[in-house]
Amino acid sequence: MSLVAKLGRVVVLFGGSSAEREVSLNSGQAVLSALARAGVDAVGYDPAEGGLVGLEALAPDRVFIALHGRGGEDGTLQGALELLGIPYTGSGVLGSALGMDKQRTKLVWQAMGLPTPEAEMLGPNADWQDVTRRLGLPLIVKPVHEGSTLGISVVHSAESLATAYHEAAQFDARVMAERFVQGEEYTVSLVGDDVLPAIRVEAAGGFYDYEAKYLSNETQYHLPCGLQEADEAELGELCRRAYLAVGGEGWGRVDVMRDAEGGFWLIEVNTSPGMTDHSLVPQAAAHVGMDFETLVLRILACTLENRPA
């Protein structure tokens, strides 16, 4: 039996109600178009419109999750699909929930001795001077449960830390400050058991924010990334270990900074990466000869395997 036949009916979930809805709509449409070209019986569905009842009515054999952010990437949807007995792409309940939480991801990495910048949680009554004394400057302030760099800002003084906190708090009740690693930014994609080539990201403004990710045509994606072969192999293995440490499965992406001394620092994981024309996983896959349709089918093929207990 061919892979397409084994997949049966696939429902692509996109949209949702998170702050990353617009990006998700673009990702979902790209995935849906690729499945149609591959001859897969596929239909798109926005859970914001009909919830789980509407999904069940479509009678999916499996689901491709192209949702980003809370409600789609944080373990809640994964738990519901587990209860419904519907196979789905990406990480399970634990990996999704943990990967969405930047602080707890960091705690797991620290416990395992994996390199990640020091950080601490912020509150409205924090002593901003003390925070900068402990972590140093510059700092990066970010919502704990958001993706796509929403609500993130780089802080260069204690005076601007309070403003950055309140901006981030508009997106999430939990906000963290992290030592900002000045250097080159890399991202490593994982599909199945494969670690794809690293991409070095160079934003025109020096910071890879929402505009640089999705709107700017000036952001440069260096592939090959320019690292020596041994260094890229070290980076790939670090990202593989980091992803598995948080329970990542199926496919995902790990973001890393490299400091002036050549040390790699883990920043965060993404368990439901973007699949738009600006997205990084499709770029890395294309570099090894995997076109978009093949990538989507490869991700779906993981749903045919039994999840680890």
Rank of each mutant, 00 (worst) to 15 (best):
D130E: 15
D130H: 12
D130K: 15
D130Y: 01
V131Y: 04
V131F: 07
V131Q: 05
V131G: 06
V131M: 05
T132W: 06
T132C: 15
T132Y: 06
T132L: 04
R133Y: 01
R133T: 09
R134Q: 14
R134C: 10
R134L: 11
L135W: 12
L135F: 11
L135D: 09
L135S: 09
G136D: 08
G136C: 11
G136F: 09
L137Y: 11
L137D: 10
L137F: 08
L137E: 10
P138R: 01
P138G: 03
L139Y: 13
L139D: 10
I140A: 12
I140P: 13
V141H: 11
V141S: 11
K142D: 03
K142V: 06
K142R: 11
K142W: 08
K142T: 07
K142G: 04
P143F: 00
P143D: 04
P143Q: 02
P143M: 00
P143K: 04
P143L: 01
V144S: 03
V144C: 06
V144K: 02
H145E: 04
H145W: 13
H145M: 01
H145D: 07
E146C: 10
E146T: 13
E146Q: 15
G147P: 07
S148W: 07
S148Q: 13
S148Y: 09
S148R: 14
T149R: 06
T149F: 02
L150K: 14
L150D: 01
L150Q: 14
G151Y: 02
G151T: 08
G151N: 05
G151H: 04
G151K: 05
G151L: 02
I152V: 15
I152T: 14
I152N: 03
V154Y: 04
V154A: 13
V155K: 12
V155D: 06
V155R: 14
H156M: 03
H156P: 00
S157C: 11
S157G: 12
S157D: 15
A158P: 06
A158E: 10
A158Q: 06
A158S: 14
A158R: 05
E159L: 07
E159R: 14
E159P: 00
E159T: 12
S160E: 15
S160R: 14
S160F: 02
S160M: 11
S160D: 14
L161F: 11
L161D: 09
L161R: 10
L161Y: 12
A162Y: 00
T163Q: 13
A164Q: 07
A164C: 08
Y165D: 01
Y165F: 15
H166D: 07
E167A: 10
A168H: 06
A168E: 03
A168S: 13
A169T: 00
A169E: 02
A169N: 13
Q170D: 00
Q170W: 00
Q170L: 08
Q170H: 10
Q170K: 14
Q170G: 12
Q170S: 02
F171H: 15
F171Q: 02
F171Y: 15
